[in-house]
Every structure is written in C-alpha cells, then in structure tokens.
Design a protein around this nucleic acid. Structure first.
Length: 224
DNA sequence: GACCAGGCACATC
DNA sequence: GATGTGCATGGT
C-alpha cells in the first residue's frame, strides 16, 4: 500500500527535486532553520548568510552567536536557532575536525545517535540531515506524514515518530531516491489537500487508502 | 487579527 | 509516557 500510494503521488505531482540546497552544509543549515517554519522564510535567512559570506564551516564556527542570530532573523526563533547552529558546528569541529566527509562516513545508527544528542536536533532534523545531506537511507517523518496517513486510517494519529518511520521502512524497498522523493511527495499532498483545515476533495489518496478520511472534527470514527 | 508553517527543549503531572 | 508552553518571523 505504501508503495502504491507513492506511485500515485508521483504520477500526480511529478518528481519534486528535494532538497533545495547548493551544498551539504546548506542542507544541514536549512534543516535546522526550517523547524516549525515556512520554507520561504528559511530561504531569506540562507540568502542573508550567503550575502554575508558566512555559509561555511569555519565562518559559522567563528561568527558571534548574536550576529548569526540577526542574519537568520527571517526564519523565526532566531536566538534559539543561532544557538543550535553554533552547537552543531562546534560539534563538527570537535568531533570531525570540521569535515563533513568524515561525518558522513560514520555508520548511520551511530551518527543518528550523535546528532540526536546535540541541542536542537530532534528526530526529524537528524533524519533530514542523514537523508538529504549525507545520502543515507532513512525515512523522514514530519507533521504532514502523520496528518496525511492518519487521516486515511493507515497509521494512528498518536503514533510515535519511530513507529511511523518503522511503518514506512517496513513497507518500502530500501531505496535512497525513493525515500528522498517520497517525503517530498507527502509534503506536497499535505500542503494541497491535508492542511489542519483539510481540503480533501481531489486528494490523490482518494479511493486508495481508507477514503473518505476519518472525520477531523468531533465525530470519532474509523479508529480502526 | 487570527491562524499557520517541512520542531524541539523543558517543566510538570 | 502524555500534555502544556516558550521560542518568533512572515504569508494567507
């Protein structure tokens, strides 16, 4: 079912070309800046970093946190995110001598654990870095993933991150391009048909999963 | 002017 | 383990 849904999404939306980013470092920075934030705001912040010529590892390592915070202001939570970025880069310098190649050579389970231990890196941010920057085979779960698939009764709405991730990985071939594009497709269908105030009509998952979707307001149904 | 956006840490029960 | 709150900007 998971793969069938992917094929349908892919037919509808075409390849999504994720993740926008000119370099692995930019992907990592974007992964932190986009936390609970519209991507459009992230592009402004990244653009500021480029204009200031500080989108590099040594530059980020040496820039004062307060100045970094001002540059990333458009992405929101700028004080928090400046701290997170500084924390990541400090770890990268310390643990991998500032070398992303070295970081990416770490075995997936260990690297994931290490990232999760950093301040401000939770499961989605860690997995986005692992998949889209490091090219590792791990399925990224986000708010849209939970919303779309629970609304169609395929997973429990209150399922944990790890449970949702396991649900996908157990049902899909272990393919990097598939993991990469599937997440992007989910975000797309979520944006177009599965907002908090849902516009389900025309959803590509119609008639595939448990459609019509579970009622979102009041009526308790299709708990399965 | 409310509501939302490609989360996470931390406090509290 | 579940639930609540702070963090903050910019678009609809």
């Amino acid at each position: 079912m998971a793969l069938q849904i992917y094929r349908r999404l892919r037919r509808r939306f075409g390849p999504r070309h994720w993740w926008p980013g000119d370099s692995p470092l930019e992907v990592i920075v974007g992964a932190i800046l986009t936390q609970n934030t519209a991507w459009q705001n992230v592009t402004k912040a990244i653009s500021n970093l480029k204009d200031a010529s500080v989108l590099g590892i040594p530059e980020l390592a040496s820039i004062p946190e307060a100045r970094l915070a001002q540059l990333i202001r458009p992405s929101g939570y700028f004080n928090q995110k400046a701290r997170k970025l500084k924390g990541f880069v400090a770890w990268l310098m310390e643990r991998h001598q500032g070398d992303l190649g070295s970081m990416f050579r770490t075995p997936l389970p260990r690297l994931r654990k290490e990232l999760l231990a950093l301040h401000g890196i939770g499961p989605e941010t860690a997995d986005s870095i692992l998949l889209y920057a490091a090219g590792m085979k791990i399925f990224v779960v986000d708010a849209y993933t939970r919303r779309v698939f629970s609304r169609h009764g395929l997973i429990q709405e209150q399922a944990s991150y790890d449970e949702i991730q396991a649900w996908f990985e157990a049902r899909l071939p272990r393919s990097l391009p598939l993991y990469n594009d599937y997440h992007a497709q989910i975000v797309q269908v979520g944006k177009e048909y599965c907002r908090k105030t849902p516009l389900c009509r025309g959803c590509p998952l119609e008639l595939l999963a448990g459609f019509p979707p579970r009622p979102h307001d009041g009526g308790r149904g299709a708990k399965k």
